[in-house]
Computed example of a mutant assay.
Amino acid sequence: MTEKDPADLELIRKTTRELARKFDLEYWREKDAKHEYPWEFVKAFADGGWLGAMIPEEYGGLGLGLVESAVMLHEIGYSGAGASGASAVHFYIFPPGPIIRHGSEAMKREFLPQIAKGELLMCFGVTEPTAGVDTSRISTRATKTDGGWVINGQKVWITNAQNAKKILLLARTSPRSDEKPMDGMTLFFTDLNRERITVREIDKLGRSAIDSNELFIDNLEVRDDEVVGEVGKGFSYLLDGLNPERIVVAMEQIGLGRAALDEAVKYANSRVVFDRPIGKNQAVAHPLADSWIRLQAAEQIAMKAAELYDAKQPCGPEANAAKFLGSEAGFQACDRAMQTLGGYSYAKEYYVERFWRESRLLKVAPVSQEMVLNYISTKILGLPKSY
């Protein structure tokens, strides 16, 4: 593998940490409470060029690798921005991946510079309410017309759709077959036409600054030149982005867990009960120490996975293990912060309740912990498939 220069990584860590921490915990508390998109935060990262981290330089990006992007998103999570801040940047970096690797030259030149500058917000339309994790059974269909397609269907849990101008949309262009269930799906990069797409926001538990939505698609007309890559190969293009997304989700969760751990340690040192700081009690100290260890271990596997990806080596086992460990360690640290603060953990002025709400999501998204275990069971251990 090509070694990353530690000095370069430290510079990225320091620069993005300083930038993210200009937005304090109160900023994120207010955005969460008001359900307001963090445009000021996005603009700050756009002005620094960071939204184009993985976009090649010829299309206006920085041309960096996954290692550098993972470091940046960790620092965003760790700053206290949590999942809301990480998602606001994450969705400029990874949904464009299929366009970078498989889009036409005209598509790349028109849209990638806009994404890198923060001028174009897109959303990712894959998940459906009746398909769940079995993407082969999506029911959204694209019917061929003269010079284009007409799409009808429904999507759910679509991030950014309240504000997005474009959508990367997965639809079936030929019937599902049991022999090759993942074939016959096509990716379209097209306008989020609100005359043909009804967007309904979902009221949810956490990450409230970033909208999640249901989409109802009614006779959406799409041109042939809005197809990404080849017709029928859309799912294979999505696979190119699954490993890197799992890696950065792990790093975001690790950062979020560390933010919660810092708050818990600060409270444990200052809160005095029975004439002693509560951090002097092993029942408080040991769980926090255990969380520190688990976060360190999760970061090691996540960074190994990122290095493998950048070196163009197989990284499926490591990427899935990173997502599993990062989600577990991050949520556990947040949960232990709640326990440490006791009754005050419910008070929003202490912030850890937001960390806890946001960290719970990543145990079920973008892939559940159980599906990670299924992958390891069958692909690594060679056990018979259970689903």
Rank of each mutant, 00 (worst) to 15 (best):
D47F: 04
H286M: 12
D146C: 00
W292H: 10
I115H: 03
L120C: 05
G255T: 10
Q339F: 03
A297N: 10
G326Y: 08
M122Y: 01
P38W: 04
Q313D: 11
I167K: 02
T127E: 12
T130P: 00
L187P: 07
S208R: 13
T190D: 07
K363Q: 15
P244D: 08
M54N: 10
A285P: 08
K34R: 13
I167Y: 03
V150M: 11
G85W: 01
G65D: 13
A88E: 07
S208Q: 13
S104T: 15
T16I: 02
R258G: 03
M107D: 01
V272K: 06
S136M: 02
E128N: 02
Y27P: 06
L288A: 09
F124H: 12
L261H: 12
R176T: 14
V372C: 05
Q162T: 15
F23S: 11
G132S: 02
L187T: 09
L205W: 09
T186G: 12
F235A: 04
N160W: 09
Q300Y: 01
I55T: 12
I93E: 14
A46I: 04
A83H: 04
L25S: 03
K379E: 15
R223G: 10
A20C: 03
M72C: 05
V126A: 00
T340P: 11
F91D: 08
P317Y: 14
L288W: 06
D290G: 04
A322I: 11
D178M: 08
A283M: 09
I76Q: 09
G65A: 10
S368E: 13
L25Q: 09
V71C: 08
F216W: 09
G206Y: 04
T378A: 14
Q332L: 12
D183Y: 08
R196M: 01
E349F: 02
S368W: 11
T198Y: 04
L239T: 14
I278W: 07
Y309F: 14
L73R: 01
G153K: 01
F94C: 04
E18F: 00
Q282R: 14
G77D: 05
Y267N: 04
D191F: 06
C334W: 05
A20V: 00
K108Q: 12
R141G: 00
L64W: 15
L362I: 05
D191I: 05
A285F: 11
W28H: 10
E201Q: 15
D24I: 05
R354A: 03
I138G: 02
D290C: 02
S291Y: 00
T135P: 01
K379R: 15
E18Y: 00
N374W: 08
G234S: 06
G49Q: 13
D32C: 00
M182E: 09
P6C: 06
M182A: 05
N193S: 14
G118C: 08
E30F: 01
N193T: 08
A264Y: 05
A81M: 05
F45P: 01
T130S: 14
A81Q: 06
L256V: 07
D32L: 01
L11T: 13
A260L: 06
S174Y: 02
M72N: 06
N243F: 07
W149A: 07
T140L: 12
T378H: 15
T186A: 01
E307R: 12
F331T: 03
N281A: 10
A319S: 15
L256I: 06
R336H: 13
I99R: 00
S236W: 13
K108E: 11
V272L: 03
I55C: 03
